Simulated scan of single mutants.
Amino acid sequence: MTPEALRTYLHDHIPLSRAMAVEVLEASANHVLLEAPLAPNINMHGTMFGGSSATLALLAAWSVMYLRLEAEGIASQLVIHRTTTEYLLPISGPAQASAHLDEAGWPSFRQTFQRRGRARLTVASELFYEGRPAGRLSGEFVAISEA
Score class of each variant (00 low, 15 high):
P107W: 09
T85A: 13
P90N: 06
M65N: 00
I74R: 12
V79D: 09
L69V: 09
A71P: 07
L88E: 13
T84M: 12
S63T: 04
P90A: 01
P107V: 07
T84N: 14
A71Y: 10
A61L: 04
E103V: 07
W62K: 03
P94D: 13
L59G: 02
L89W: 04
A71L: 09
M65Y: 06
H100A: 05
S108R: 13
S92L: 08
H100K: 13
Y87N: 04
A99M: 00
S98P: 02
T83S: 14
M65Q: 12
R68G: 07
G105W: 08
S76H: 01
S108V: 13
I91Q: 00
T84P: 00
W106C: 00
L78A: 10
Q96I: 00
A97F: 05
R110L: 15
S108A: 15
A61T: 09
W62A: 10
R82K: 15
A75K: 11
R110H: 09
A97M: 02
G105C: 05
A97D: 03
E70V: 11
Y66I: 03
R110Y: 06
S98T: 11
T85V: 15
A75F: 00
G73K: 07
Q77H: 11
S92G: 11
L69A: 09
L78I: 03
L58M: 14
A60L: 04
A61N: 06
A97L: 08
Q96D: 05
R110G: 01
H81D: 14
S63V: 10
Y87C: 04
R82L: 10
I80N: 11
L78E: 12
I80R: 01
A61D: 09
R82H: 12
P94F: 02
W62V: 08
P107F: 05
R68P: 04
